[in-house]
Design a binder for these strands. Structure first.
Length: 553
RNA sequence: GCGCCCGUAGCUCAGUUGGAUAGAGCAUCGGACUUCUAAUCCGAGGGUCAGGGGUUCGAAUCCCUUCGGGCGUGCCA
């Protein structure tokens, strides 16, 4: 990457100046390179001189001059190097450097932009992890998009990634779920049974009950209520889980592993984990319950692991689950949780430490909630009445591409306004189409060019690309590896959507200024290669997001 | 009360972890198709970066504080 090379060069220049005694430094601080906001300030800039100035007690611009003088022969890389403002050093890349980017893209294809910063490291991303008691909601859609794309990004950066879904198929929620189905079943068969206060009221519960009736009629009215609920629990569970998998598949998300919470209980893993923690002195009994000493790790309260009624808490099972994950040898386990779980982070990290692992082995990404809008108006949803827009309905209405792009457009730290009307609008208001359109447009040019006999032979004369729209587009293409690597480092995905829009914009601008297929064969070929490169990178970027890159629109 | 997230253009949001004159999209207004896709492009207006203090060569960014919004603060998950 250009950036690494530049950092190295600046580092060397400072080192040389130091060796010659021009800069009285003990050590060389890390050099920071950045893209100046102003185009007039060059392709890259460093504030190294400003940082060093205080150290060596010299004016920043003088320090900058010394660094620049130590650069040696630079003509092959730069058009010029300037000192500007308070002491910035601005680098103006030579076009040759930019043309190299085009050949790299051509050589590397879909691997262009990939890095090896994660090579040799195993990472697990756990996300969605919904209760299998009903259809997924919009929030799940956000975590699905975020988790899946994060996994894409990490693997593009060399990590070995596993996607995991933790199925919360144990405990009270499941019992209520089973009871809800059983009551609906009885009601549909004409029995006058009251619906439980805390039951799930969604229409889908009735659908499940109807299906059972369609298959087995009133067969289960003859068994005890307890047995009936037990039977329905399994049946409804399987159906809902299937449904969840189906919905996720519609979003383009496929998990490597589905981990059942039940299994932890069935194999006594939960109790064993608690005993292990007890041996290490992190567990005690009080008020009839079993407690975890979260306060040992800076938490404000200790937490219950086993209730006075003998039932383990969700937290206890989650510790056992995390122990299992940690023992599977991941260098990092990443959980994606909704904002409503953020209060849970501290105790989970405490548990990780109690299990003997460093707290940062576990990383938790908190995603803020999604506000659903339609034409600017909030969509009413009520958990109590079961009235809500499901993820299925959303996907049905706006499609996978728009859904994923919208879910990924904002920082996970920010709440997301999802406007259904905007997402399905096929107009300039919709950023998804804007990016996809750039790709379709290029495809169309390529088809036309081929029909006109323009072909991409080996020796493309890149140097014919020298106008601003062309060079700006190449500069944008050159940014992709930086964007992709930073996304992995920061675990932040929205810069990818921002980038895809910027790249599309750079292309559209180029398109209106530069005729691709024309009289001059060499120029046509050179521009064609630029189009192909752009197409490749657009596809790479959209691919990370899980959005399709259409050939036609 | 305490903890986490957020507060930047009329609206929705970026802002590369402290850099140069704070940027996009939408909306508004004005322009551009006989030539490869106008789902596009160009131009214009629009700002007390919620308020106040501090740290330093330099702050939207870091610290303190006030205000406003969301979430959490269970022997729920």
């Amino acid at each position: 990457m250009i950036k690494d090379k530049l950092e190295q060069l600046v580092q060397q220049a400072i080192g040389a100046a130091k060796a010659e005694g021009k800069l009285p430094l003990l050590e060389i601080p890390p050099v920071v390179l950045e893209h100046p906001k102003e185009k007039a300030h060059g392709d890259w800039a460093t504030n190294a001189a400003l940082v060093l100035a205080g150290n060596v007690k010299m004016p920043p611009r003088a320090v900058a001059q010394i660094i620049v003088d130590s650069f040696g022969n630079t003509a092959t890389y730069f058009d010029k190097i300037e000192i500007a403002g308070p002491g910035f050093i601005n680098f103006y890349l030579s076009n040759r450097w930019l043309y190299d980017v085009l050949s790299q893209i051509r050589e590397q294809g879909e691997k262009y932009g990939h890095s090896t910063i994660g090579a040799g490291q195993k990472v697990q991303v756990e996300f969605v992890s919904a209760n299998p008691v009903g259809p997924m909601h919009i929030g799940h859609g956000r975590w699905a998009a975020v988790g899946d794309t994060l996994a894409n990004v990490l693997s593009a950066n060399g990590y070995t990634v596993q996607r995991e879904f933790y199925i919360n198929d144990y405990g009270n929620q499941m019992n209520i779920f089973a009871k809800s189905v059983a009551v609906r079943y009885a009601q549909l068969l004409g029995r006058d049974v009251p619906f439980p206060e805390e039951g799930y009221r969604g229409e889908y519960i009735k659908d499940i009950a109807r299906e059972i009736i369609a298959e087995d009629n009133d067969k289960y009215m003859s068994v005890s209520e307890q047995d009936r609920e037990a039977i329905f629990k399994e049946r409804a569970y399987m159906q809902v889980l299937d449904h969840i998998k189906h919905t996720l598949a519609n979003m383009g998300v496929v998990f490597d592993f589905w981990f059942s919470e039940r299994v932890l209980h069935e194999l006594s893993t939960v109790t064993k984990t608690i005993e292990e923690l007890r041996e290490h002195g992190y567990v005690y009994d009080s008020e009839g319950a079993v407690w975890f000493k979260a306060t040992e790790f800076g938490e404000d309260k200790d937490r219950v692991l086993i209730r006075a009624n003998g039932e383990p808490t969700y937290f206890a099972a989650d510790i056992a689950y995390h122990k299992n994950k940690l023992e599977r040898g991941f260098d990092k386990i990443i959980n994606i949780w909704g904002a409503d779980h953020h209060g849970y982070i501290g105790r989970m990290k405490a548990a990780v430490q109690a299990l003997g692992y460093p707290a940062d082995r576990l990383e938790i990404i908190i995603g803020q909630l999604v506000n659903l809008l339609r034409g600017g108006e909030p969509v009413r949803m009520s958990k109590r009445t079961g009235e809500m827009v499901t993820l299925d309905e959303l996907l049905e209405e706006v499609g996978k591409d728009a859904a994923r792009f919208f879910f990924l457009m904002r920082s996970t730290d920010s709440q997301l306004d999802f406007d259904i009307r905007l997402a399905k609008e096929q107009s300039n208001e919709n950023p998804v189409y804007y990016v996809q359109y750039a790709h379709a447009r290029i495809s169309s040019i390529v088809r036309f060019a081929e029909a006109e006999g323009v072909s991409l032979h080996e020796d493309v004369k890149y140097s014919l690309l020298k106008t601003e729209p062309e060079l700006d587009l190449i500069r944008k293409l050159a940014e992709w590896p930086e964007v992709l690597e930073r996304a992995a480092r920061q675990r932040a995905l929205h810069p990818l959507t921002v980038y895809s829009q910027e790249l599309a914009a750079a292309f559209h601008f180029f398109y209106t200024k530069c005729r691709v297929v024309g009289e001059d064969k060499d120029l046509s070929t050179a521009r064609m290669s630029l189009c192909e490169a752009t197409k490749t990178v657009l596809r790479n970027a959209l691919g990370m997001l899980g959005v399709t890159a259409p050939e036609r629109m």
